[in-house]
Deep mutational scan, measured.
Amino acid sequence: AVTGSQTALLLRAFEKDRFPGIAAREELARETGLPESRIQIWFQNRR
């Protein structure tokens, strides 16, 4: 499950760019500790 702090970080990124590229998703994966594929799905679901 995604924690509150991970969600906050993802929401901030989403406000800046609703369609992040692979580099941005990989950076978010490093920052959150989540797999990049999970980040991609999160953005798809959020849109």
Rank of each mutant, 00 (worst) to 15 (best):
P20Q: 00
A13F: 11
G4R: 15
Q6I: 13
R46Q: 14
A23T: 09
V2R: 04
I39R: 01
K16V: 09
L28R: 00
L11S: 06
A23C: 13
A13M: 07
E31Q: 15
Q44K: 10
I41Y: 08
L10Y: 02
D17H: 07
A8S: 09
E26V: 10
P35Y: 02
P20W: 03
R47I: 08
F43P: 00
A13N: 03
R12I: 11
L10T: 00
I41V: 10
N45A: 11
A1M: 13
S5F: 14
A8Q: 11
T3R: 05
P35T: 14
A23E: 13
A1C: 15
K16M: 10
Q40E: 14
G4A: 15
D17C: 15
I22A: 13
R47M: 07
L9V: 14
R12K: 13
E36Q: 09
R46D: 00
K16Y: 09
T7G: 08
E26N: 11
G21V: 03
P35W: 03
R12W: 06
G21E: 06
A29T: 04
A1D: 13
F19E: 06
L11I: 13
R12H: 07
I41S: 11
L34V: 04
E31P: 01
L10P: 01
E26Y: 09
R18D: 05
F14M: 03
P35N: 07
R46V: 06
A8N: 08
P35I: 05
L28M: 05
L9K: 08
K16N: 10
F14V: 01
G4P: 15
A1S: 12
A8K: 12
I22H: 11
A23S: 10
G33S: 04
R38W: 15
Q40K: 13
A24N: 04
R46I: 07
F19I: 05
L11A: 06
E31L: 15
E26A: 12
I41W: 12
E15T: 07
A24P: 02
R46A: 13
E31H: 08
A24Y: 06
G33C: 03
P35H: 09
T32V: 07
Q44C: 09
W42E: 01
W42S: 00
I22C: 11
D17F: 05
Q44D: 09
Q44S: 09
L34G: 00
T32M: 04
A13C: 13
E31T: 11
T7Y: 15
F19A: 05
Q44W: 07
A24D: 08
T3E: 05
T7M: 15
V2F: 15
Q44R: 09
E15P: 02
T3K: 06
E26D: 06
R25D: 01
E36W: 05
R25M: 15
F14Q: 02
A23H: 10
L28A: 00
A13S: 06
L11T: 10
V2C: 03
P35A: 09
E36H: 06
K16P: 01
R38Y: 15
E36A: 11
L10E: 01
R12T: 07
